[in-house]
Amino acid sequence: MKITLKVWRQKDANSKGAFKTYEHSHVSQDMSFLEMLDVLNNELVQKGEEPIAFDHDCREGICGMCSLYINGRPHGPLQTTTCQLHMRSFKDGETITIEPWRAKAFPVVKDLVVDRGAFDRIQRAGGYVSVNTGGVPDANEIAIPKKIADEAFDAATCIGCGACVAACKNASAMLFVSAKVSQFALLPQGQPERKERVEKMVAQMDEEGFGACTNTKACEAECPKGISVANIARMNREYFSAITSSYEVMAKGGGD
């Protein structure tokens, strides 16, 4: 296969970027998209041109490190991670445009690499159950209905790649945040901190500069793990319930 690539090149966070065009003639259908870029990079190095920087690690679709906005879609034409995308999804002679994730909260570091530190900071605001190591009950002490456990699992499969933000016209992080909120709202272990968790995580999300959700569902359509927007609905309800009846509000005599 022969393809033409239009790739966003940007020296660093403070420099202005631009598209650069590459003719790539050593492409096979069996290559993964990232392998196609590896081959190009090797050719660039041999020609003395600086290779294209992009994030990747596990190449199994689970670590969430790879990104890339391909032909106007996060992770390209399939609902999968870029590392699991293969060149058989493209046509011979096709022109492929590759950009970094585009969101104010994900500033470009270099070329196609962006800073997703905002996601970590949101998790730090409350995306956990506050238990220390040791001193916990036996694992089978609390029975959890399979249906609930499965639903919590579905929410917990988020890989934190940021495709939901990249897909959203508002660059909203609601799908990402709601997945974690849902996991713990569903499970008995998450109950003691249920209300403050959602308040803190949403506050941090807003502080990071992510946009609001306007229910276009582009996030769900592009999420490589198929995280459902039902989680967003759940988070909205959790949030409303928390701000009107949190322990702080109740202590002050407010709420219901």
Partner: peptide, 22 residues
């Protein structure tokens, strides 16, 4: 055996049977 207890307490969603146990 302690590891499993710890992970469940953290909210790790292990596979469960219909009776709700692991």
């Amino acid at each position: 055996v302690n590891i499993i207890d710890q992970c469940v307490a953290q909210g790790v969603p292990f596979a469960r049977e219909y009776g709700g146990l692991l």
